[in-house]
């Protein structure tokens, strides 16, 4: 017997799914998630209120670290490890080191954003119970899905179905995995 993962409903406009998300949040549901073919403005804030993830801060930290590290490699190489007099220039020729330090800063910033995005979205994760839903493939095309998961303390299949129907859902489906 497969266990119940949640109840999923399909909506055909972004406004309807925003409406439904706001209603469910207000009714006290907490473990719900919406799936959409493109980023619907404001939907993330309705479903996950509270502080945003710290990705921009992570990228900024990456920038500071990258700049420092990039400069340090060159300084260590040219001034400490293998000091070489090139045309009488100082060992710590900072104007020359700026260029590579700048590029290294950008590389580490982009890499921390990229890997931070994967980590915070918990990807790669090739299997997820939501993939069992028959309507799920429409979420990457033209439908807006919202799923109340069974782990929600207030989860009650019948009342959620009723709520979805009242909110004008196109289809309602139980997801089992």
């Amino acid at each position: 017997m497969k266990t119940l993962f949640g109840i999923i409903a399909t909506f055909d406009t972004p406004d309807a799914v925003k409406n439904a998300a706001a209603y469910l949040r207000q009714a006290g549901f907490r473990t719900l998630e919406a799936y959409a073919p493109y980023p619907v403005e404001g939907l993330g804030e309705i479903i996950h209120p509270g502080p945003k993830p710290l990705l921009p801060l992570l990228m900024f930290a990456g920038a500071v670290f990258g700049a420092g590290w990039g400069y340090w490699i060159q300084y260590w190489d040219e001034a400490l490890n293998y000091p070489l007099n090139v045309g009488g220039r100082p060992y710590n020729s900072w104007p020359s080191f700026i260029v590579s330090a700048f590029e290294f800063m950008l590389l580490v910033t982009i890499a921390s954003g990229f890997f931070g995005l994967l980590a915070i979205s918990r990807l790669p994760r090739l299997y997820h119970p939501i993939f069992e839903a028959k309507v799920f493939e429409r979420a990457s095309r033209d439908r807006f899905l919202i799923c109340v998961e069974a782990t929600d303390p207030r989860f009650d299949a019948a009342s959620i179905r009723a709520a979805f129907e009242q909110l004008g859902a196109e289809r309602i489906e139980e997801v089992r995995s």
């Binding site: 998630e33 959409a36 073919p37 993330g44 994967l118 299997y127 997820h128």
Partner: peptide
Amino acid sequence: LGWRGSSEQWRN
């Protein structure tokens, strides 16, 4: 990579 298009993933 198992992208799901959840509101959280889109926002990030």
